[in-house]
Amino acid sequence: MKKYKITVYDEKTGEKHTIEIEMSEEELEELAKKLAEKHNVKVRIEKV
């Protein structure tokens, strides 16, 4: 498992949230996809 920083940005409201999380790359990609689809936000992932 690796550490990642996830930034979620909502273009409508301008809200931006960043968290650090430790998980596998596959789980992370699935999480990012679900966030983007369900909440209509942009998701950026960076390795820490």
Rank of each mutant, 00 (worst) to 15 (best):
E27M: 07
A32W: 09
I45P: 01
V43N: 01
I6L: 07
K47V: 15
E11Q: 14
K12M: 12
T13W: 05
K2W: 15
A36G: 09
K2Q: 15
G14E: 04
E29G: 08
Y4I: 03
K5V: 08
E15A: 12
M1H: 11
E26N: 11
K2A: 15
K2H: 15
N40G: 15
E37R: 06
I19F: 15
V48E: 05
M23H: 02
M1T: 13
T18C: 10
H39V: 13
E11T: 14
K12S: 12
H17E: 12
L35H: 01
I19S: 06
I19V: 07
S24Q: 09
K33N: 08
I45K: 01
I45V: 08
V8M: 15
K5H: 05
V8W: 15
E26C: 09
L31A: 03
S24L: 13
E22L: 11
E27D: 12
I6Q: 00
E30R: 11
K42I: 15
L31Y: 14
I21Q: 05
E27I: 04
V41R: 02
M1D: 06
S24G: 08
K34G: 06
E11F: 13
V48A: 04
E30W: 09
K5I: 10
E30L: 13
V41Y: 07
E37G: 10
K16G: 09
H17V: 09
E37M: 08
K34I: 08
T18W: 05
E27L: 06
I19D: 04
H39E: 14
K3H: 11
L28D: 00
E25N: 04
K38H: 08
H39T: 13
E27R: 06
V41E: 02
E29M: 11
K16H: 11
K42D: 06
R44M: 13
K34M: 10
M23G: 07
L28N: 01
I21R: 06
T13G: 08
E20M: 13
M1G: 07
I6K: 00
K12W: 12
L35S: 01
E27C: 05
E30S: 09
L31G: 00
K12R: 11
K12V: 12
K38N: 13
K5D: 01
T13F: 03
K3D: 02
N40P: 02
M23F: 03
E25R: 07
K33L: 07
E29L: 13
E30V: 12
S24Y: 14
A36F: 12
A32M: 11
K47Y: 15
K2G: 15
E26K: 11
I6R: 00
T13I: 02
I45C: 06
H39L: 09
K2Y: 15
E37L: 11
K38W: 08
K34N: 07
S24E: 08
I45E: 00
K16N: 10
M1V: 14
N40T: 05
V48L: 11
V41F: 10
E37K: 11
M23E: 01
E46Q: 02
D10Y: 14
I21M: 12
D10K: 02
E11D: 06
Y4D: 00
V8P: 00
E37Y: 04
T7N: 01
E15S: 08
I45L: 02
K38I: 12
E20V: 14
E46A: 02
K2L: 14
V41W: 09
I21T: 06
I21H: 03
D10M: 07
E20P: 01
T18S: 06
V41I: 09
A36C: 14
A36N: 08
L35M: 05
I19E: 06
R44K: 14
I19K: 03
H17W: 15
I21S: 03
H17M: 12
T13R: 04
M23R: 01
K12A: 13
L31V: 07
E26I: 11
E29T: 10
T18Y: 09
K38F: 11
E29Q: 12
T18K: 03
E29D: 11
Y4E: 00
M23C: 15
K12E: 13
Y9K: 03
V43S: 01
K12H: 10
K12P: 03
E27V: 05
K5C: 06
A36Y: 09
R44Q: 14
R44W: 15
Y9V: 05
E26A: 10
I21G: 08
E15G: 09
E37D: 07
L35D: 00
L35A: 02
K42M: 12
I6S: 00
E22Q: 07
K3T: 08
R44E: 15
T7H: 12
Y9D: 04
I6P: 00
D10A: 03
K12Q: 10
T13K: 05
L35T: 02
L28C: 09
K16E: 14
A36W: 09
V8G: 00
E22V: 10
K38Y: 08
E29H: 12
A32P: 01
Y9G: 01
E30P: 03
K5L: 10
K33F: 09
V48C: 13
I45M: 01
T7C: 08
H39G: 14
T7M: 05
N40W: 11
E26S: 10
E22A: 06
G14T: 03
A36D: 04
E11G: 06
Y4M: 01
H39S: 12
K3N: 10
K38V: 08
M1R: 14
H39Q: 08
I21A: 12
M23V: 10
N40L: 04
E46V: 04
E37Q: 09
L31F: 14
E37H: 06
E20L: 14
K16R: 10
E37V: 05
G14I: 01
K38A: 06
T13P: 01
V41D: 05
L28V: 14
H17Q: 12
E20I: 14
N40I: 04
A36I: 10
A32R: 13
N40H: 09
K34F: 09
I19G: 02
E37I: 07
L28F: 03
E37T: 09
I45T: 01
E46C: 14
H39P: 14
K42W: 03
R44P: 01
I21Y: 04
Y9F: 08
T18N: 03
A36M: 13
V43I: 11
I45S: 00
M23S: 08
K42L: 13
R44I: 15
E26M: 08
S24P: 07
G14F: 06
K3Q: 12
T13D: 02
K42Y: 05
L31P: 00
K34T: 09
K16V: 15
K16Y: 11
V8E: 04
E37F: 04
E25V: 08
V8H: 02
K2V: 14
E27K: 11
K38G: 10
E15P: 02
K5Y: 04
H39K: 12
A32T: 10
D10I: 06
D10C: 10
E25M: 11
E20Q: 10
Y9S: 06
R44N: 12
I19A: 06
E22W: 13
E15T: 11
K33W: 04
E20D: 05
K47T: 15
N40D: 08
V43D: 01
N40Q: 04
K12I: 13
L28P: 00
V41N: 12
E20W: 13
V8I: 14
E37P: 02
E20H: 12
V41H: 05
K33D: 03
E22G: 02
T7Y: 06
I45R: 00
M1C: 07
V8N: 00
K38C: 13
E25A: 06
E15N: 06
I19N: 03
A32Y: 08
L35W: 07
N40S: 09
I45W: 06
S24V: 07
K3I: 08
E26P: 11
L35Q: 01
K16Q: 13
E20S: 05
K34L: 12
I6T: 00
E27A: 10
K3W: 15
M1K: 13
K5P: 00
H39I: 07
K5A: 04
I19H: 06
I45Y: 04
E20G: 02
E15F: 12
K16I: 15
T7F: 08
V48K: 03
K16D: 08
S24R: 09
E11P: 10
T7D: 02
V41G: 14
H39W: 04
S24W: 11
E20C: 09
M1I: 11
E30Q: 11
S24K: 10
H17N: 09
N40K: 05
E25W: 10
E26L: 15
E29Y: 15
M23A: 12
L31Q: 01
E46M: 02
E15R: 07
L31M: 06
M23P: 00
E15K: 07
L31E: 01
T7K: 02
K42F: 04
L35G: 00
Y4L: 01
V43H: 02
E46N: 02
Y4C: 02
K2I: 14
V43L: 04
K12G: 11
D10S: 07
Y4F: 06
E20K: 06
Y9R: 04
H17A: 05
G14Q: 07
E25P: 06
T7G: 02
G14L: 06
L28E: 02
T18L: 05
V41K: 05
K5S: 05
A32C: 13
E46Y: 02
A32D: 02
D10L: 05
E20T: 13
H17G: 04
V48M: 07
T13C: 09
E15M: 11
K33G: 04
V8Y: 12
I6G: 00
A36Q: 11
I21V: 14
Y4R: 00
V48R: 02
K3E: 03
T13H: 04
I45F: 04
I45G: 01
T18P: 01
E11Y: 14
E30A: 07
V43C: 03
R44F: 15
V48P: 04
H17P: 01
A32G: 05
K38M: 13
I19T: 07
E30T: 10
D10F: 12
V43K: 00
N40Y: 07
K34R: 13
T18E: 05
K47C: 15
K12Y: 10
K34Q: 09
K33Y: 05
M23N: 02
T7P: 00
L28W: 01
I19L: 11
V48N: 02
T18H: 05
E11W: 09
A32Q: 12
E11N: 10
Y9Q: 06
D10T: 03
E29S: 08
V8Q: 03
S24H: 12
V43M: 02
R44A: 10
